[in-house]
């Protein structure tokens, strides 16, 4: 069977990374944790939980970490690559579903969407932020997706080789959509359930970060 690699970007997630790695290992051949310059024990715990660890010497943001993750997965010989968050928001079976969707052969890139089956307990404010993200992504890149800001996605090796990640922070989620459009990749969405624990909510992104993300997206659209 194809070699499946799950990439987990992690920034100061020592409390949740072990469980995330163990869960991911159940549905993948290899788990690559990109420790984005954490100041806690994220790297050590990830390694002892069975992940391959690539460690950023300094924090580069989610986009930087995902770019490293894709490059690393390719070097490790991945045929199929999925990404999921380190804070316990994503379920391994959903990553498996996204990867399985690729095996069907009619999609190059899969987004795990929290909106297709409205399960889970997504808070209203997150829902609103997500809708704004979707709208902006559509305006800039002309493709409507039901969950443009999802951190759970999957892609084939060929897709990962063509996708170029330039953004360094949270704008990366929309940039993936841009790349899918620009490189004419076939996009599919599968339903996932996002788990909102008190922990993930306490660490999640603020309204201000949302604004910065929107600003960066528009600026990059104008500049490159």
């Amino acid at each position: 069977m194809e070699k499946r690699v799950i990439v987990i970007p992690a920034y100061n997630e020592e409390r949740t990374i072990a469980e995330a790695v163990r869960g991911a290992l159940q549905v993948a051949d290899l788990v690559l944790v990109v420790d984005d310059g954490s100041s806690d024990r994220t790297s050590e715990i990830a390694a002892s939980s069975g992940a391959v660890v690539a460690r950023h010497a300094v924090n580069r943001g989610l986009g930087g970490a995902l770019g490293t993750g894709l490059a690393g997965a390719l070097r490790l010989g991945a045929d199929l690559i999925a990404t999921m968050d380190a804070d316990g928001q994503h379920r391994p079976e959903d990553a498996k579903r996204a990867l399985d969707r690729l095996s069907a052969g009619d999609a190059d890139f899969v987004i795990g969407s929290r909106m297709l089956e409205r399960k889970g307990n997504m808070p209203v404010r997150r829902r609103l932020a997500q809708l704004l993200g979707n709208a902006l992504t559509f305006l800039l890149f002309r493709r409507w997706v039901s969950d443009s800001q999802s951190g759970l996605r999957a892609m084939t090796r060929a897709a990962a080789e063509r996708i170029e990640i330039r953004s360094s922070r949270m704008e990366v989620s929309s940039e993936f959509v841009k790349e899918v459009v620009d490189k004419r990749l076939r996009l599919a969405e599968v339903p996932i359930e996002a788990v909102y624990t008190a922990y993930s909510l306490s660490k999640g992104q603020s309204f201000l970060v949302g604004l910065q993300t929107a600003f960066k997206l528009v600026l990059h659209k104008l500049l490159d």
Partner: peptide
Amino acid sequence: TRELALKDI
């Protein structure tokens, strides 16, 4: 940072 991180994985 990326090159350094991936150098010896």
